[in-house]
Amino acid sequence: MASLLLAPYTVHLPVLLRTLVLTVLVVPVVSYALVPLLTKAHGAARRRAGRHSRSAVV
């Protein structure tokens, strides 16, 4: 998805430089936005599962 959005701006760059630009932009977004959301969702799912079952998976 990100590569498609960046394609008009990076089409003139060599492949390795395009990869570097994509990595520099995507890794922080995933680290600071997506991972915390997934962690929160996982915690909520575990709490919900814990209410319904006595033996919670650790």
Rank of each mutant, 00 (worst) to 15 (best):
T10Q: 03
R54E: 05
H42R: 15
V35W: 04
L6M: 14
A2W: 06
G43Q: 08
V57W: 05
L25N: 04
R46S: 10
V58L: 15
T19A: 14
A2G: 02
P14L: 01
R51M: 11
A7F: 05
A7T: 03
A41C: 06
T23K: 11
Y32C: 13
T19N: 07
T39P: 00
V11P: 00
A7V: 07
L16S: 06
R47V: 01
R47E: 08
Y9P: 00
V24T: 11
R47W: 06
R48Q: 13
L4R: 14
S53T: 12
A45S: 11
M1C: 13
A41N: 07
P14A: 09
T39W: 06
S55A: 13
V24E: 03
V15E: 15
R47I: 03
A41R: 05
G43C: 01
A2C: 03
K40W: 04
Y9W: 01
L5T: 09
P8S: 05
V57I: 05
V57E: 15
H12L: 10
L20V: 10
V29A: 15
V30P: 08
V26D: 11
L38Q: 09
L22D: 02
K40H: 06
H42I: 09
A56Q: 06
T23D: 08
L5H: 06
R18A: 03
L5K: 09
V26Q: 11
R48L: 15
A45N: 10
L16K: 04
Y9K: 00
R54P: 09
R54Q: 09
L25V: 14
V11E: 14
T19H: 05
L25G: 10
L38I: 14
H52K: 14
L4H: 07
A49W: 14
L17N: 06
R51K: 11
L20M: 00
S3P: 01
A33I: 06
S3H: 00
R18C: 04
L25H: 02
